[in-house]
């Protein structure tokens, strides 16, 4: 499995730089002094106990959450409160959510073409071709005319991935994409994500799928209480964790 990861190239070009980033919910200090540099082509898995701020961290990257201190630079654009900047970054960064968040009033195809048509001003026909291309990639082109409510959870999550890909993002964020799925559907979603990784997509995944982390990630980050506790290559991270907090966490989730 390890050779899988080495096949995938990481370039020297920097995709995301986060430095000295702090965030508070009211008076609660959620993220503390986060420093993180992500190179293009990296597949990073972020894990940690619930409430450790992993979701908040990746939601800060596309400004779904506001940070109060420090800086985040995505693709050379500095995240500020300027709405134009935010919309630009959001259109470059795709995101998949735990609960898919497909638009229930639109068909699968319309879900996929909406943003390209309105944000990128792509002609409708071209947008539909792109959408069908990505729907084929996630292996559900035959559901294009159905509504999200008619699909299974795994299919919905794959549509959500295709919807993000239709914007041709340079970075993909995954916020616990398999946590709301049945075990047999987890595999079909993970397969899609692995394929995406093999094509060299820059990915940040919050997930508890440690098998996926071993197979795909080139770096695993462990977070606790709003800070990055440990980060390492998957082999070293799983076989030889350094901090006691990481050891405890790994023993708990790998123990059974």
């Amino acid at each position: 499995m390890a050779e899988h990861a080495t096949q995938m190239q990481v370039s020297d070009e920097i995709a995301i730089t986060i430095s000295k980033m702090n965030k508070w919910y009211g008076t609660f200090h959620v993220l503390r002094d986060i420093d993180l540099t992500v190179n293009r082509g990296e597949r990073i898995v972020i894990c940690g106990p619930s409430g450790s701020g992993k979701s908040t961290l990746i939601r800060c990257i596309n400004a779904l959450e506001e940070h109060q201190q420090g800086s985040i630079e995505v693709d050379g654009t500095l995240l500020s409160s300027d709405l134009k900047n935010i919309d630009k970054i959001r259109s470059e960064v795709g995101m998949c959510f735990q609960h898919f968040n497909l638009f229930p009033h639109l068909t699968i195809l319309e879900n996929c073409t909406l943003a390209p048509i309105w944000v990128r001003k792509t002609p409708k026909k071209e947008a539909e071709e792109t959408a069908m291309h990505f729907l084929e990639k996630v292996k559900i082109p035959d559901q294009a005319m159905k509504y999200p409510g008619q699909l299974s959870g795994g299919q919905q999550q794959r549509v959500a991935i295709a919807r993000s890909l239709c914007m041709r993002p340079r970075i993909m964020l995954f916020d616990e994409p398999t946590s709301a799925l049945d075990p047999e559907m987890i595999k079909e979603v993970l397969d899609t994500m692995i394929e995406l990784a093999e094509e060299g997509m820059t990915m940040l995944c919050v997930t508890h799928e440690m098998g996926f982390a071993r197979q795909v990630a080139n770096r695993v980050i462990f977070m606790d209480a709003g800070q990055i506790v440990e980060q390492n290559e998957p082999e070293a991270f799983f076989n030889n964790p350094q901090s006691p907090r990481t050891q405890l966490f790994l023993s708990q989730i790998l123990g059974h």
Binding site: N62, A63, L64, L83, D87, K88, R90, S91, V93, G94, M95, F97, H99, N101, L102, F103, L114, A115, W118, V119, R163, S164, M167
Partner: peptide, 21 residues
């Protein structure tokens, strides 16, 4: 659900587009 707002935002739709569409 809040997720609908977030999904619209994460795709880069601006406020009028997110509301209208």
């Amino acid at each position: 659900p809040k997720g609908q707002y977030e999904a619209a935002d994460s795709l880069g739709l601006d406020y009028p587009q997110a509301m209208r569409l």
